[in-house]
Simulated scan of single mutants.
Amino acid sequence: MGKVKVSNIRVYAHHGCLSEESIVGSEYTVDVNVETDLSKASITDDLSDTVDYVQIHLIVKEEMQIASKLLEHVAKRIIDRIITEIQMVDTVEVYVSKINPPIGGDVEKVTVVLSSKRN
């Protein structure tokens, strides 16, 4: 087994329960960790034998552009697409963070973490 991590994907999106959040938007970061068998890729040096992190990045960017009220909803959509589109992935963990959330306090970010295993 092995892991592929794509860290600190930065996006501007329009998620949130407040109407202002859907209009103005805010900054987010997304981290994705996947587990898969990397033994073949470590020998063949062939991209087709591993998880392509470019594809992970594309999935995250596309799903983050679909507005949702909850970060949990966005994270689940990202997980579902990774499991569906990248057959090599055994488990996936997604961290979606809202930078400077509008919660009336000095908070750097809030983060939702979801994970799933292939059935």
Rank of each mutant, 00 (worst) to 15 (best):
Y12C: 11
Y12I: 13
Y12P: 03
Y12D: 03
A13Y: 03
A13R: 00
A13F: 00
A13D: 04
A13P: 05
H14L: 04
H15I: 02
H15G: 10
H15D: 04
C17Q: 12
C17L: 00
C17A: 09
L18S: 09
L18R: 14
L18I: 13
L18Q: 06
L18D: 01
L18M: 15
S19M: 01
S19V: 02
S19D: 13
S19K: 14
E20P: 02
E20Y: 09
E20A: 14
E20V: 11
E20K: 14
E21A: 04
E21P: 06
E21W: 00
E21T: 06
S22I: 11
S22R: 00
I23F: 12
I23V: 15
I23T: 14
V24T: 15
V24H: 13
V24R: 14
V24G: 12
G25I: 05
G25H: 00
G25P: 03
S26V: 05
S26W: 03
S26H: 12
E27I: 08
E27Y: 08
Y28F: 15
Y28Q: 07
Y28E: 11
Y28W: 10
Y28P: 00
Y28H: 07
Y28R: 03
T29D: 02
T29M: 08
T29S: 07
V30G: 03
V30H: 06
V30D: 00
D31F: 02
D31N: 15
D31I: 00
D31V: 07
V32I: 02
V32M: 03
V32W: 00
N33M: 11
N33D: 08
V34K: 02
V34C: 08
V34R: 01
E35I: 05
T36V: 10
T36W: 01
T36G: 01
D37L: 04
D37Y: 02
D37C: 02
D37R: 01
D37G: 04
L38E: 05
L38S: 09
L38C: 07
S39T: 15
S39F: 09
K40T: 11
K40V: 09
K40W: 03
A41K: 05
A41H: 05
A41N: 07
S42M: 11
S42Y: 08
S42L: 11
I43F: 04
I43N: 05
T44Q: 09
T44N: 12
D45C: 09
D45I: 01
D45E: 13
D45R: 08
D46H: 08
D46I: 07
D46F: 03
D46Y: 06
D46S: 12
D46K: 13
D46T: 08
D46A: 11
L47T: 10
L47Y: 08
S48P: 04
S48F: 07
S48M: 06
S48C: 10
S48W: 01
S48K: 14
D49N: 12
D49G: 07
T50F: 03
T50I: 13
T50P: 12
T50D: 05
T50M: 14
V51P: 05
V51C: 07
V51F: 08
D52G: 09
D52A: 12
Y53A: 10
Y53D: 12
Y53E: 15
V54Y: 09
Q55W: 01
Q55I: 00
H57A: 07
L58Y: 05
L58G: 03
L58T: 15
